[in-house]
Every structure is written in structure tokens, then in C-alpha cells.
């Protein structure tokens, strides 16, 4: 169609086949593959405009469809290099067909695609978040810290005015202890998870729901043979008093395909 000069890219798979995956794309678009060499791009035809909406539900449906196509592609072709949402190619001039633009790109980026494919082969991405409960941990710290014990004993012997000052000091000491501990946990947990992962990206921590604090938020690239051992390690952490783990996946390796590139043609 004349208006559909854009090619929405879902991902690149290690397959030379030109196939139709059917109307499973965003808004039911027909998804198909454009091959070049040993790779094929998974695309649908669209206008050369980004998908935009202020309707959150619609955005969620789009994102789910994007992910659904990648799941199907993985099922069919094995490893898939994922694109982020709204990656749309367009021809630079009238003479070039949109499919040709995709082929030209696959050709131009071939080496990079090979090295990324090598890195992600037989691996998936998993999200790992570890939370702690400050209340429970705080009580443990209070029981174990000699400094806190001493301050508490002193408070009991002080006048109300002095006791107030001591309580403030106590709070400060407890907070510092907690920070010191969090630092140690972070390093400890990271060290325990690292042997199970081929690569790790440290993500920003988010505000957690309820009375929990997110201690670490990691994206892990994990070989399919190491998923079980990672799961066991996380189970152990999850069973520790005051800690809980959120373990999501398998995801396409979204966090491990972006790094290799900064080249913008013409620079």
C-alpha cells in the first residue's frame, strides 16, 4: 500500500526463511520476515509514523503484541535479537523499496548482528529484583549492634531532655548501620548471582510496594543450562528472613543487544 512505506521492526532472527507469521502484530498487522544472508528481520508494514497514544491500555496492548511476536519468532527460529518499541525503518528516497531498506540494513550491520547473535545464542534475559524489609532488618541490627545496645542502656538513665537527644543519635546510628549492611548485601548477592550469569546489567532500583525496599535490580543474561542453578540461588535468598526475590523471564535479551552500537552514519 502506498501509505505503508515504513517497516516496523520486531527483531532479527538467525534464519534465512521468508515466511508469514500471520496477523499477530500490533493492531493485528500481518507479520512476516525479510531475509538477508543467514538472518531475517521480523516486520510488519506501517506508515512512517510512530505509534503514539495517551491511552495506557492501548499502549499495554501494543507492547504485549510486540512481545508476543518475539515469543512466536523465538519458538520458530531460536535466538532473536529484539528491537525496542517503535523502531520503524523508512526508505531514504523514492527509488528504494521499503523491503530493500531492511535488506540493506541487514547487509550493512551483518558483522554486528553476527557478534550479538553469538553472544545471546542459547541464552535468555531474566529480571532479578531483591527486596528487604527495613522494619525486620532494623530490629535485627538493634539486637546485634553493641553501639546501639549501649545507647539504649544510656537512654534509660537520662533525663527526658537528654533522652530525646540520645534517641536521635540512636536513629542516626541505626540508619548508618542499615546503609553499611545494604552495601554489604548488595555486593554479597551480586557475587552470588554472578557465577550463574554470562552478563549482568545493574538497573536503577524502583520504589517498591508495601513495606519493602528494593535493594538491587538486575537484568541477567543466563545460559539455558544455568537457569536452574540461578533459581536455586535466588530461592536461598528468598528464604532468608527479611528478604524477598522477584524473578521474571525468560525475556528476549533486550538489555544485552544495545551496547555494541553508537555509530550514526556520517559521523
Amino acid at each position: 500500500m502506498e501509505q505503508e512505506k515504513g517497516r516496523y521492526l520486531y527483531g532479527v532472527a538467525a534464519s534465512e526463511s521468508a515466511v508469514r507469521l500471520g496477523p499477530m502484530g500490533i493492531e493485528g498487522c500481518d507479520v512476516y520476515t525479510i531475509p538477508y544472508g543467514d538472518f531475517c528481520a521480523i516486520v510488519h508494514n506501517c506508515p512512517t509514523e510512530p505509534y503514539q497514544s495517551t491511552d495506557e491500555e492501548m499502549v499495554k496492548r501494543w507492547v504485549s503484541a510486540h512481545q508476543g511476536v518475539l515469543d512466536e519468532a523465538k519458538e520458530r527460529f531460536g535466538a532473536v535479537i529484539p528491537f525496542g518499541f517503535d523502531t520503524i525503518l523508512q526508505p531514504g528516497d523514492e527509488a528504494t523499496s521499503p523491503d530493500q531498506v531492511v535488506k540493506d540494513w541487514l547487509k550493512g550491520d551483518y558483522e554486528r548482528l553476527c557478534s550479538i547473535m553469538e553472544k545471546i545464542k542459547d541464552r535468555d534475559e531474566y529480571g532479578v529484583q531483591i527486596f528487604y524489609e527495613p522494619g525486620l532488618i532494623g530490629r535485627q541490627i538493634a539486637e546485634q549492634s553493641q553501639e546501639i545496645q549501649k545507647l539504649k542502656e544510656e537512654i534509660a538513665t537520662k533525663s527526658p531532655g537528654m533522652a530525646y537527644i540520645y534517641r536521635q543519635k540512636l536513629e542516626k546510628v541505626a540508619k548508618a548501620e542499615m546503609e553499611k549492611l545494604a552495601d554489604r548485601w548488595f555486593k554479597d548477592f551480586y557475587g552470588r548471582l554472578k557465577p550463574h550469569c554470562d552478563d549482568i546489567v545493574i538497573e536503577k532500583t524502583r520504589k517498591a510496594d508495601g513495606d519493602r525496599v528494593m535493594l538491587l535490580n538486575l537484568s541477567c543474561l543466563v545460559h539455558k543450562e544455568k537457569v536452574d542453578s540461578l533459581g536455586r540461588e535466588l530461592e536461598e535468598i528468598n528464604n532468608m528472613d527479611g528478604f524477598s526475590v522477584h524473578f521474571s523471564g525468560p525475556w528476549p535479551p533486550y538489555s544485552f543487544v544495545a551496547k555494541a552500537v553508537v555509530s550514526i552514519k556520517g559521523e
Binding site: 515504513g6 521492526l9 527483531g11 532479527v12 512512517t48 509514523e49 510512530p50 535479537i81 529484539p82 528491537f83 525496542g84 518499541f85 523502531t87 520503524i88 525503518l89 523508512q90 531514504g92 531498506v101 540494513w105 550493512g108 550491520d109 550479538i116 533486550y254 538489555s255 543487544v257 544495545a258 552500537v261 553508537v262 555509530s263 550514526i264 552514519k265 556520517g266
Partner: peptide
């Protein structure tokens, strides 16, 4: 996240 392309190819 996801793979990033050369900017001149993008819309």
C-alpha cells in the same frame, strides 16, 4: 531497550 539502529535509517 533493544537493538539500536543507525539514526539515518529511522523514521
Amino acid at each position: 531497550k533493544g537493538l539500536i539502529l543507525n539514526a539515518d535509517l529511522m523514521i
